[in-house]
Every structure is written in C-alpha cells, then in structure tokens.
Design a protein around this nucleic acid. Structure first.
Length: 424
RNA sequence: AGAGAGGUGGCAGAGUGGUCGAAUGCGACGGUUUCGAAAACCGUUAUACCGGCAACGGUAUCGGGGGUUCGAAUCCCCCCUUCUCUACCA
C-alpha cells in the first residue's frame, strides 16, 4: 500500500497518479484517509500522555508499597482509575481509526511511474518493440487445440473427468515438453544470477496481504477454508513473502530469486471468447523471477528482467512484442509493467506470456521489507517480479508456429531438454 | 493425531508481579593504544508510532492475540510454532 507519509506530504502527486490510473474516487478517498490520519495522531498523543502519567503513578505506588505506606498507595489509585478509563477509550478508538485508515489505504492502487502512457484500456498500451518474423503457414494450419488431439499430448477431457474444466492432463511428449521447458527456464534464470527456490504453493493470509492479492483479489484465489490457506495464483506470492518483516543487509542486495510452481486461478467471471485450449487455465506452470533492490536501482533491474525474458523468447524462436501498459490497464499494485506477448500463428493473435513489473515500495510497505540506508535509517526496498515464463501459451505458440505436415519441429534449444526434436 | 518440554535483543543465555527494553557472554561498530594488526581497556549496539526544526522526550513491543492487576517477560485463557516420545505416513 501507499505510504501515509507520501499521502500527507505529496498529496497532489498522489491525486495525479490515481487519475492516471483511472482510479474512480481518488480525491474523496485521499481526503478521508488524511482526516483519519489527523484523528489518529490526536488520539495517539492523548493516549500516550495519559499512559505516561499512569506509568509514573504505578512507579510511585510501587515505591509506597515497598515502604509499607498502604494508605498512600490507595490514595493514588483513584487517579490511575481515571487514567485507565481514558487510555482504554483512546486505545479503542485508535484501533478503530487505524483499521478504518488501513482499509481505505488497501483500496488505493499504486501510483504509475512517469513513463507510463496515458490510457484507459488495453488498446492504449504502448508497443515498445516487435521482434521476430511471424511464420507463414499453409492452408491446412490447425490451432493448438486441434494439434494436441492429433498428437495426443494434452487431454482436456481427461482433466474434466479428474477435476474439471481448465485442468488439462499433459501426456506423452506433451508432459515431457512441459518438463523440458521448466528445466530450460530455470537453468536460464540461474545463469542470469537468480537463486533457485522451491516455495510452498499454499500460503497464509498474511502472505496474501503482503503482496497485495488480498484483500483485492480474494475471489480469484482458491481458498482452503479449513486451514485458511490460499493456493497461490503465482510464485510471486511465496517468493516475495520470503522477505516479509525483514531488514535486509546492504551487502545481500539485490535479492534475485527464481522458482517454478504450479499456479492456480479461479478466473471467476472471465470465461468467454478466446479462452479455448491452453489460452486460459485454472492450473498452469510458471517460472517466476523476483528481484528486491534499493530504490535507486529498481528501474535498471526492471530493464534487466525484461531483457532476460526477451532472451528466452528469442532462444525459443518465437515472434513477440513488448508492451508498456497504460495507466488504466496496469495491475493494482504495479508502478510500471511490461507485458510480453507471443504470436500465435494459427489463432492469428498475440498471447500474453509474461508480465514484468516494478512495484516500487507498494508491496514493501505491506511486507515491511526494508534495508538500512546510509546513516542507519531503515528504508523500504523496491520489489519486482516477472514471469519467465508461463508455460501454456508458450506451448500453444510453439505448437502452432512450428507445425508441419510431418509434425511439430521444436526449436533447437529444447532438443536436448526434451530428448526429441519433433512432436509427431 | 496423542503426551511432555520449550519460544526472551544479531546469536548464546539470565530473569517467575514493582524504574526490566530487559543481567551476563559472544559478535558487530566507534575510540584509546600501535608503524600497522592482535590483545587489552572505554563506549555504542532493536523496531514502530506520536510530539519536536533539532537535541531530545513519550508510548508500545520478551512467539501472536485476549484477560487479571495501580503495575505483567513473569499469573490466567486461546492460537501459532519448535523439540522429544508415541501413533501414522512419502
């Protein structure tokens, strides 16, 4: 969440940022938060003064009890009772005000970076660059949901039977291709300096709040009510929460970690057109990269992460484009996001396979993820993450773009990972 | 899952109702000493919020939450977690 000090000291900047993100009730919410903040400080000051007096009296009573002056002690207790009433009332209201302020702060999205383009929706996103050549396919071109049946490598019917829609079973060369991609992506990340991690894929409530999935996207996560745990929608959640409530020593920065996990998304209400086949699933595999850096270095880190993801797509020989998301299309928690889309030749459309974002201090503020700056003061770090990469749409593009009459020719880089060069 | 024992500052480890944010040791940092270093000695050594230009002052925090009390690390209740044994499992 945004820092209250920023709302206080740079209100205009905050309002401008919220407007750029097309956040509906910016000025009203900010005003309400600042009102609560003022009340909060009043209450705290008054509470602390009363508590200080009560502490002093308690000390005096202690002294009197020691000398056996019971009457003297009793005389002071009258005043402590008054003070107690006051501190309790103040503490109760303070808790209420703080909770109210927190709820409002949770509702405010992150502020967009200066380079974020103006715009309301996906059509307003800026195409930064396009790379690679779209393949020209013959007239017998098939979309990937036909190809997977033809080669019997991914089975949706079987997934329906076992679980439900959106939970496919990967079979034969399909399963091996999954495993190959996972290994390829993890190896690449490790070579780029990321430390491999294997985190839990169920997380507690505190972690959900830490990275901002809660309370915002409650309905998008699968929830185990019995243990109050959430199935992760992305490895971002467990990986970033490793550093929740930590003060990271300067010499450990930047943090660079990677991990492969299955990801679970309820995708409530988002099923409709264009979700056939592998385009949108309830469960999928993804390799995530995460960086945590000092504020001055986070945008360099963001560019490095983007370059890493691009190199993966280049090695896979997939045509792609890089988008800089506009204010209205960015995620709630992001300050700047690049989306990477691959060309899906048979569908004739771009598919999002990665999203690389800098959250600046928005997540770190919730996470209390800090470092000790020059002069000994603790300061919030910047958190970043990106998909590198999400598997299903990569598989869709690989199948469609590389189809031939004799099978699917896989890119060279995957041959050794797969143990075969062609599907079919 | 059942029984028992624990969870104290960066670490180790005292403290079982009254100036305890917390002894002591180690580590770290600064200083004295030294050509330099080690050793020795002296000092500093948490986080957050509130007030203040600041110096500084106040409040809270001894796994988390609630309670008893004028006063809680210390007593009571709930939860989390670690270890040992038993059960079970991969």
């Amino acid at each position: 969440m945004l820092q209250i000090s920023v709302l206080r000291d740079q209100t205009d900047l905050v309002l401008a940022g919220l407007a750029k993100k097309h956040y509906p009730t910016g000025p009203a919410d900010v005003a309400a938060i600042l009102d609560l903040d003022q009340r909060r400080r009043q209450l705290q000051t008054s509470h602390d003064a009363a508590q200080a007096e009560a502490n002093e009296l308690a000390r005096q009573i202690g002294g009197l009890m020691k000398t056996g002056d019971k009457a003297g002690a009793e005389a002071l207790k009258a005043r402590t009772a008054e003070l107690k009433q006051h501190t309790q009332a103040a503490a109760a209201e303070l808790a209420q005000v703080e909770e109210g302020q927190k709820q409002l702060l949770f509702k405010l999205p992150n502020l967009p970076h200066a380079s974020v383009p103006e715009g309301r929706a996906a059509a307003d996103n800026e195409v930064v660059r396009e790379h690679g050549t779209k393949p020209t396919l013959g007239s017998d071109t098939q979309p990937h949901w036909e190809l997977i049946k033809k080669y019997d490598i991914i089975d949706f019917e079987l997934g329906n039977k076992i679980t439900g829609a959106g939970f496919p079973v990967y079979k034969n060369q399909g399963a091996r291709l999954q495993r190959a991609l996972i290994n390829f992506f993890l190896d690449q990340a490790r070579q780029a300096g990321y430390t491999e991690m294997q985190p839990p894929i169920l997380v507690n409530e505190a972690s959900g709040y830490g990275t901002g999935q809660l309370p915002d996207k409650d309905g998008q996560m699968y929830h185990d009510a019995k243990d109050n745990l959430y199935l992760i929608p992305t490895a971002e959640v467990p990986l970033t929460n490793i550093y929740r409530d930590e003060i990271i020593p300067l010499d450990k920065l930047p943090i660079r970690i990677t991990g492969h996990t299955p990801c679970f998304r309820r995708e409530a209400g988002s099923w409709g057109a264009d979700v056939r086949g592998l385009n949108r699933l309830h469960q999928f595999d993804k390799i995530e990269i995460v960086q945590i850096t000092e504020p001055e270095r986070s945008y360099d880190a963001l560019e490095a992460m983007l370059a890493h993801v691009e190199s993966l797509l280049q090695q896979l020989n997939l045509p792609y484009r890089v988008l800089r998301l506009c204010g209205g299309d960015m995620s709630f928690t992001s300050a700047l996001t690049y989306d990477l889309e691959v060309w899906s030749a048979a569908q004739g459309r771009w598919l999002e396979v990665s999203s690389v974002s800098n959250f600046e201090t928005y997540q770190a503020n919730r996470l209390k993820c800090r470092y000790r700056a020059e002069g000994g003061k603790t300061q919030l770090l910047h958190t970043l993450n990106g998909s590198a990469l999400a598997l299903p749409r990569i598989v869709a593009a690989l199948l469609e773009n590389n189809q031939t009459s004799t099978g699917i020719e896989l890119p060279l880089v995957l041959h050794s990972y797969c143990g075969f060069e062609r599907i079919g």
